[in-house]
Design a protein around this nucleic acid. Sequence first.
DNA 1: AAAAGACTCAACCGCGGAGAC
DNA 2: CGTCTCCGCGGTTGAGTCTTT
Length: 295
Amino acid sequence: MSIATKPGVGSNEEETELRRGPWTLEEDSLLIHCIALHGEGRWNMLAKSAGLKRTGKSCRLRWLNYLKPDIKRGNLTPQEQLLILELHSKWGNRWSKIAQRLPGRTDNEIKNYWRTRVQKQARQLNIESGSERFIDAVRCFWMPRLLQKMEQNSSSSSSSSVMNMNSQNSAINVPSLSPSLGEFTDIAANHTRTHTTTTTYNNNFDFPDHYSLPLQEPFEISENPTSTALPQVSENYNNDVCFNPVQDHSYGMEGLNLEPFSRTESNYGIPKFDYCQSSESEWMGEYSLWNLDEM
DNA sequence: AAAAGACTCAACCGCGGAGAC
DNA sequence: CGTCTCCGCGGTTGAGTCTTT
């Protein structure tokens, strides 16, 4: 079995020398060209026929995570983040399975998102990721936040290009979001809509069962994503992509002050407080907004 | 302006399953 | 049935970048 040479460690036997590390433009071109000719799969053979000194695994990874034309770039949208949270609560670290529900997103990207954003937040709150408290935090704080963000986006999207990136990006063949995602976001947006009729949310957020999934099995419901409940939202999702050009890294959970939540067991279970006191306040960075002591 | 620390994400690694022989 | 190879997945690493001090 050939062992990849480490960077800087030379090998006299050229045929066993394998490159590692970042891919060059030339390598990318070779791989793309070869896949265009032969298609995906048979990665070891592909690597050889392309003349690449890479393992088949490396070629596969490069293609799937970076070169494949339908890969989306940019930050995950609130909808995507919400879906990730939801699916992770359902499936755990099944990244590839989760990625199948997010067209254009790779398992690697989702995994990175989870580790760098979600788990980081859990660490900062001294919540063990995957614990019930963590699930609570996701459900009672982060999901509603994302739903709120979705609502804001959807209300402003009519005058923005946020939801229309797909049609503008003719170079990239982006598949439609799965019907399940449309279904899901319909339901999720409906949750938001239900509560945005008032200026105050409460954290119960009509997640009916404390530990059961708030949106039970929304993914295999229908082949038709069209929703009668929220046509405008569905429409957006049928149009797809939702690549948000705004470089907003704060869609996620950064800035949430869950200290009381993480510290006070009495708040665990049925925490009661408003989490959306002010629609005009930029919720990211409003640490005090989340301070239970103030309630 | 520079150093230190934090963060991101592309890429690698090891493992296990599937299929061919 | 055992062995080998390929493929795909999840976990991990580390270089580059960004932010903070």
